[in-house]
Each structure stands twice: as C-alpha cells, then as structure tokens.
C-alpha cells in the first residue's frame, strides 16, 4: 500500500472536469484507490465520491493506493494534480 499527501493546485479545485479526468485515470489501474480528506475517505474511482470531497484549491488530500500497480496509479494521479489538470 502507498500513501501520499498532496495539495490541490488548480484554481477551481476538483470541479467537474478535473474530477472526471482523475476518475478516468484511476479506473485504468487494478489497484484499489481511495482519497482521504480530513475524516472523509472516498473511492477515488467513483465520480460521486470525488465530487463529495469538494476539494477546492489548496485542499490537502491523501492518496491511498493498494494493489499490483499501486505505484503507477499514484504517479499518474499525482502528476495530474501537480500539473493542475492543465487548467
């Protein structure tokens, strides 16, 4: 299992388009993927879950991946967030 803390960088936060990009990217991998914000943990492959996080710019999240391709999953998702979803 890999855990990684990360901060949302794009101005509008995890709104519709970034959430969709994140979920689509995560779904390609076989590993389980959760995202934690404070006390809330959601399934990172669920668009509804990611929406409920309502993560705005500056929000601190923890990515938690568990499975055969966990490192690749964390890499891709981190990159998306670090690059601010190209926004």
């Amino acid at each position: 299992m890999i855990q990684k803390k990360i901060t949302i960088k794009n101005k509008l936060g995890l709104h519709a388009r970034p959430s969709a990009l994140l979920v689509k990217a995560a779904t390609k991998y076989r590993s389980d993927f959760n995202i934690r914000r404070d006390d809330t943990v959601v399934n990172g492959k669920s668009i509804m879950g990611v929406m409920i996080l309502a993560a705005e710019c500056g929000a601190e999240l923890e990515l938690i991946a568990d499975g055969v391709d966990e490192a690749f999953l964390i890499d891709e998702i981190s990159q998306l967030i670090e690059e601010g979803f190209d926004e």
Binding site: A20, V23, M48
Partner: peptide, 16 residues
Amino acid sequence: RDILQSHLLILRDPEI
C-alpha cells in the same frame, strides 16, 4: 464530450 463522459462515469460509478 465532457457531458457525455460525465454521464459515462456516473453510469459506471463503482460505488453506485
């Protein structure tokens, strides 16, 4: 495309 993609993601949401 965004609208249709979001419908796809909702349709296939594993939690739902």
